[in-house]
Design a protein around this nucleic acid. Structure first.
Lengths: 196, 196
DNA sequence: GTAATAAACTAACGAACGTTAGCAATTAAT
DNA sequence: ATTAATTGCTAACGTTCGTTAGTTTATTAC
């Protein structure tokens, strides 16, 4: 009856959430069972409930952890004294960095949020909509200042966000180029596509 | 005990596969039950098995239906007598059109293929890899001919394919711009991002 | 050292799932 | 009109699921 090994900084719950991120990313939320998760943690399924309330709570933790980081960064970017185009590049770089460094959480948050339950679901959707609106407003500002060519701003945002999601495939890839090169390639292509 | 209504052209099985596409797109493959599907079709769950072999067979039909269309179009594009950059634009336009016209099937094929079972799973993955390789080869050819700026070709393909996946959000959107405008926006931005 | 707390275990629950068997009703073929 | 083939139905099967109850073991606090 050995206890879960704990890293220096982090509760048992955090360890479980981390393993859940990995599992949900690999198999999807619905296809991941609590017994799967228990095995990954090295414990019986019932034991997990000493640390978490439910399976969906794990999804809350993951989704809102990611959403909060993105929201906070949006605050920072908006208040920077740089051009709108530079702000867009800043956002793109942050998305790429998050996707590279916190791949599993970001991926799960992106693909599995629909399995959240109200009121978390509505809350998450609102945050998401808000984020995109703020992003689109920056893009629009860039168009007004002729730094970005005239296009439908919400569409531009969709393209940018989804394009960055492509890093998923890079992560799985066996022969991957290094992270810096990937970042520069993406920024070059995406920012390049914006210019008039 | 009324029978399933049938459109002029199409078997009962095709009707069921169509409803499955819609259901799987909305809720995901694992979260969609055969009882859900039966209700959408207007029949009891057990009755579905007079027309299909299993739940996964529905996923096979959807995934390979889409994959075959894309493979066939790749054949056609490759043999066209146009520049590499024009071929890339041709592929992009096809992807966009497919995403707009056959949204649900394409979406399901893209996001739910991992629930295929071997040997279908391996087969699908191989087709997918092959397709991307051929796409990347065209991109590389475009770089050699200075029509496309020098970048990591596989990365470019990932970005392009995922960016087009963003049409998903367009489909859900309430205030959507029209399909033609969307297409031109996307092509402009994506092809624009490729040029030196 | 003893008591209190935290965290593991075994066993089992009710619900939902994909699927099968057997039968009834409808449609198509002769 | 009779037969054969389709296509629906009800009932139930064996699994797997998330979760709870109750208990035992390990750690922490005094």
């Amino acid at each position: 009856m050995a206890r879960i090994k704990i890293e220096k900084n982090g509760s048992r719950k955090e360890l479980i959430v981390g393993k859940a991120a990995s599992l949900f990313r690999e198999k999807g939320f619905k296809a991941s069972s609590m017994r799967d998760l228990a095995e990954a943690v090295g414990v019986e399924a019932a034991s997990l409930y000493n640390h978490i309330k439910s399976k969906t709570e794990l999804l809350h933790e993951l989704c809102f952890g990611v959403a909060n980081r993105f929201m906070q960064h949006m605050d920072e970017t908006e208040s920077k004294k740089i051009t709108a185009l530079q702000k867009v590049e800043d956002l793109i770089r942050f998305h790429i960095a998050e996707m590279i460094e916190h791949y599993e959480e970001v991926y799960v948050s992106d693909r599995e949020w629909k399995y959240l339950e109200d009121p978390y679901l509505s809350n998450f959707q609102n945050q998401r909509r808000m984020y995109r609106k703020r992003f689109a407003a920056i893009v629009e500002e860039g168009m007004k200042q002729k730094q970005i060519k005239k296009m439908d701003a919400p569409t531009v945002v969709l393209i940018l966000l989804h394009a960055i999601g492509g890093i998923e495939s890079w992560h799985r890839s066996t022969q991957k180029i290094n992270a810096d090169a990937l970042t520069e390639n993406m920024v070059s292509m995406l920012v390049g596509g914006l210019k008039p």
